[in-house]
Design a protein around this nucleic acid. Structure first.
Lengths: 351, 351
DNA sequence: CTGTTAGCGCTTTCAA
DNA sequence: TTGAAAGCGCTAACAG
């Protein structure tokens, strides 16, 4: 039997009435604001339970009538993947404006710790929250901690700084991503043919980027454990630049007659494809890379690359905004929704 | 130079003032409601442009103060994947209640078109919108069209009925999923060894389910085009039941000495694993299946299955609710956010 | 066709 | 420590 014939969801007013207190007091208890006696609080809590009260999100948001300023700090320069993230943030403009959230994209040189730290130091006061592609460097760690100290919500994006006090990381598990690439290479190459030992080339962006380093680590783990017949070459650093990568792979091809596969931990895969095409080796040497871009999509379709390990920039952009908003507005984060998956993309499941 | 020193976002009131009309008229124009002269509408539109006005979602939602009832029609019985979807819908309970959305999960026998059609026919009046796992059958198509005719929002879930008038499909492209499975099998098996032709077994749920049929089709396409050395056996139907699948695979193993791989288009993969283990063939015969469940996770970890092609039930549950809400509330659907990806899961990128 | 007005449910001063 | 009351920005009768 119901307490009330009325089936409209209970409001805070109903709770207040049921508890015999005022609206303001009920509000204080429900939102954990101070200045309520333990006894009164208890009565309100009971009423909340009894009526199964849940605050209406829209009403709370309207009454609060606050607006938020978020900064998104991304590496400048023509990195395609980062541009995708920026585009996806912009694509949310309407959604954001309808919630009084302003987002400003700040481009900077993430490789330059001093410059990045200075950029971050200028943020408090102008913004309520920041998302940044972190360099895992003591100076940046300190800069992040200063932001948190200043009361800002901080999340890292794509590349984490786990030892900092950032509240959340929006990105993939890069060790798992590297392992996934390793398994794909190992399985796609198939069992050893005779007793030749094939060589696997590794192209990477830079030793100092945490995400790249983690990918190399995961990749190496799997190859060492599961495919000992494969020889891993020393990683070569092309700074995610197609031209540099092309040159590096040219040399790799010249120096390594038994090369059977190439793994690129970062961007600039198109240079690898070019070097292979020049040598007439496209599709003869197995390639696995990261991130879906127009260039990698093309190379997946023409068979130059067999698979890509990817993260969804759209998901990351949306997740970042949701997490930042939840953080500043004191709402709960839906972990499952914000988990960024390590995707495997073949020609057949291209989005 | 700004028109106003005030930097608070413009409200509908500001628009009305700027256009020299009343709040109500501005509201009519902004929401496309009838009863406004073209001339007045034009003035309001101009003011909207000039002030860059966007309605505040929370205020609109509060003022509308409507509540919604959604029905989610799922197959009853112990299907693990469907239970995951149901659980994920329930996990959103708080989010939903905060928006005055009530969701009721209706279990039924989706294989029985009459029963399903009857179930659907009972929905109008009790619900504003429905999501259902569709059987692509004329009777169901008609039942869906009747719901739409009755003014309900209808989306199909996991299995589509494209020729019906449903407004949206929440699920993966099953042909692409089948192709992906085909490529994984082909590539993982590697180039033919000598001139033996390996046989590939196909276990499927039922011929009548559209999603399974599409997966078989996509799988067959890739194998025929790219891996002609592989012989596809006639699909066997186990109705997604582990016990039936075990029996079918036992027989398959007995009858097919050159069996090199098995593809399961549906559930009940655990029966396949059991039959292989009995025969001492686990990890010697390549297996690819669908959907991540406790059973498939275990078999991925122990190597019985090499890969899974999957869709994320959490994403589907959330997407379904968002789409239904957008549909009934007349909001825009963010296509990119609602696109359900065909995932490839290896041991290394298990979520 | 247009305007006036009373809310929607919660938050936040300001008094008591 | 508690309460009264004035909104937040938009919607939806109801008048005109």
């Amino acid at each position: 039997m119901n307490n009330h014939a009325n089936d409209a969801p209970p409001t805070l007013r109903d709770v207040a009435a049921a508890a015999g207190v005022s609206l303001a007091t009920a509000d204080r208890v429900v939102n954990g604001r101070p200045g309520v006696s333990a006894k009164t609080a208890r009565k309100v809590h009971e009423a909340v339970q009894r009526l199964a009260f849940r605050p209406l999100a829209a009403a709370a948001e309207l009454a609060r009538s606050r607006s938020w300023r978020f900064a998104v700090v991304l590496p400048g320069g023509g990195n395609r993947f980062m541009m995708d993230i920026a585009d996806n943030v912009r694509a949310q403009a309407d959604w954001l404006r309808a919630r009084r959230i302003g987002v400003e994209i700040v481009e900077t040189d993430v490789f330059d710790a001093d410059r990045l730290a200075a950029e971050l130091a200028a943020l408090p006061g102008r913004f309520d929250a920041v998302a940044l592609v972190a360099l895992d460097h003591p100076r940046i760690r300190a800069a992040i901690d200063d932001l948190v100290e200043a009361g800002m919500a901080v999340v890292t994006l794509v590349s984490d700084a786990p030892s900092s006090r950032r509240q959340h990381y929006v990105g993939i598990d890069n060790i798992a991503a590297g392992r996934t690439a390793g398994s794909l290479v190992g399985r796609f190459l198939g069992p050893p043919r005779g007793n030749e030992r094939g060589a696997v080339g590794i192209v990477t962006g830079a030793g100092s980027l945490r995400d790249h380093a983690e990918r190399r680590f995961g990749f190496g783990q799997v190859l060492a454990e599961e495919y000992p017949q494969l020889i891993r070459l020393t990683p070569v650093e092309g700074r995610d630049d197609p031209d540099r990568n092309r040159e590096l792979v040219r040399r790799m091809l010249a120096d390594t007659p038994n090369l059977v596969a190439i793994y690129n931990t970062g961007e600039g895969s198109v240079g690898i494809g070019e070097a292979l095409a020049e040598a007439g080796l496209a599709r003869r040497i197995l390639c696995v890379g990261h991130e879906l871009t127009p260039a990698t999509r093309r190379m997946l379709l023409d068979g130059t690359f067999a698979a890509l390990v990817a993260q969804d920039p759209g998901h990351e952009a949306r997740s970042m905004v949701r997490v930042l908003h939840a953080l500043v507005a004191g709402q709960e984060i839906v972990a499952a929704q914000e988990h960024i998956r390590v995707q495997v993309i073949l020609r057949d499941n291209l989005p």
